[in-house]
Structure formats: C-alpha cells, structure tokens
Amino acid sequence: MSGTREGAPASWEVFLRSRRGLAHQHVGSVRAAGPDAALAAARDLYTRRGEPLSLWVVRSDAVHTASPDERDPYFAGARHKPYRYPEHFAPLTEKGPEGEHHE
C-alpha cells in the first residue's frame, strides 16, 4: 500500500470493546506505518485505564460510509413507516404494553 510519506504514516480508525457485553465502539484514530504499530499506538492511547477487552484498527481509507447528507435518497426506507413500531398498535391489555398478558 503506498501513499505514505515521511512524517505522515497512514491513518487508522480505532475501535475498542471496553467491557464484556459491549460491541466495539469507534474511539478515534491513530497514525501508524502498519497494523502492528497502529495496534500498539491504539493501545497506548485508548487503553490507559480500565480493563479493555479488545481493539480493532482499520485503515481509514478502507472504511466506506454513507453520510447524513445522503439521508433522503439513501435512508428513505427508515422513515415514515410508523407501522414498524409496536406503539403503532393497540396494547394487548387495558393496562398497556407493560401490563399482564395472561387472561
């Protein structure tokens, strides 16, 4: 992979799973020449406290995104569909959705 010049190694996005039961979460980025160096930099930077469980580093230019600016055409499927939510329908008991369900 080219594109590195002196003083400007590649950018890597860092994902940290900080606790058992959580998904990896994006925490920021580091600059490093290769994946080993990126992991070491991410460890030094994002895991100085707590008991982190795992780290991912992904080259920033390998991440592809759909931005909020493209919301209308791109994410149109998520909007104006109230019937996808339970609140759109009547609860099963008079006490509401949290009420008892047995007769």
Binding site: M1, T4, E6, G7, P9, A10, A32, A33, G34, P35, D36, A37, R59
Partner: peptide, 19 residues
Amino acid sequence: GAWVREAAAAYAARTDGTG
C-alpha cells in the same frame, strides 16, 4: 524520533502493510 518512523515505514513496506 525520525529513525523510529523510518524504521516503522520500512517494516510496513516489507510486510506490505499487512503485519
């Protein structure tokens, strides 16, 4: 610290950036 960055870049080039 320049030599450290150069060494890291050389290592990454040799391993094709894959580690």
